[in-house]
């Protein structure tokens, strides 16, 4: 469904990605894990068209989207829930969700999707008319995810959905991600919380300073000693 091939991305003169390649197959949850500055968000922003790679290609659903502008990529069925949620604070919760369906023209169908989103996130229904800026962090994350679902994406990209949330909320969010996936949406998940990410993902890639260092099934990586010590807080056998 998504194939990223050897992308190199620069911020000015600084190279952020040194040739990253990976793929996401239909129906999967794939996670990219890695420390701050490893290039996870940059990778996602390149996929969704906010950044242009200097070289390499991004293919989505069989089409080359490397040079396609971001707003057209959304229309192709790729939703990106960005880091820091980026909800629209001065718009109401409902308006935020409607914006998520901006590319859709089928009004009645959109209304159905809105109902589904409200069913999945009842809190959003309660706060429908409130300004999104007044929501709590967890509610904002739900709004960002709900907004992403409003375009009925084939691929949902989530950047740090657990950031800044309490452990209970993190559990909730991951449960919801898994449910969304089970209903047929492919998911690309970036997380610093590698422990949680590796529990729900099928496969994972470990990024370090703009390169893919390790790849494998989530189960394999959970057992990998390097991953355990670097990302899962394992403090055993340093000697």
């Amino acid at each position: 469904m998504l194939a990223v091939d050897n992308i190199q991305v620069f911020y000015g003169a600084i190279q952020a990605l040194h040739g990253i390649s990976f793929e996401v197959k239909e129906g999967e949850i794939v996670t990219l894990i890695g420390a701050n500055g490893a290039g996870k968000s940059t990778t996602l922003r390149t996929i969704s068209g906010l950044l242009r790679p200097k070289s390499g290609t991004v293919k989505f659903d069989g089409m080359d989207i490397t040079r396609v502008p971001a707003h057209k990529i959304v229309k192709m069925g790729l939703a990106h829930v960005p880091e820091g949620r980026k909800i629209f604070p001065d718009l109401t919760v409902r308006e935020n969700l409607i914006m998520g369906a901006y590319t859709r023209t089928d009004r009645t169908e959109t209304a159905v999707t809105l109902e589904h989103v409200f069913q999945r996130f009842p809190r959003l229904k309660e706060r429908e008319k409130q300004f999104a800026g007044t929501l709590s962090g967890g509610e904002q994350q739900m709004l960002a995810m709900g907004r992403g679902l409003m375009c009925k994406p084939k691929l949902l990209i989530l950047d740090e959905p657990s950031m800044g949330l309490s452990p209970i909320l993190v559990e909730d969010i991951f449960k919801i991600i898994k449910e969304i996936n089970q209903l047929g949406t492919t998911i690309l998940l970036v997380e610093q919380n590698a422990f949680m990410a590796l529990q729900i993902a099928h496969r994972a890639y470990v990024l370090e300073t703009g390169k893919v260092m390790l790849a494998g099934s989530a189960a394999e990586l959970r057992e990998d000693p390097k991953v355990r010590s670097a990302y899962l807080g394992d403090v055993v056998d340093i000697a």
Binding site: P82, F88, P89, Y102
Partner: peptide, 18 residues
Amino acid sequence: MAMRTVSLDHDAARLMGV
């Protein structure tokens, strides 16, 4: 609505398909 979102955040608006 698109104008209001663009005034808040260009990138977020782009990600909505604006």
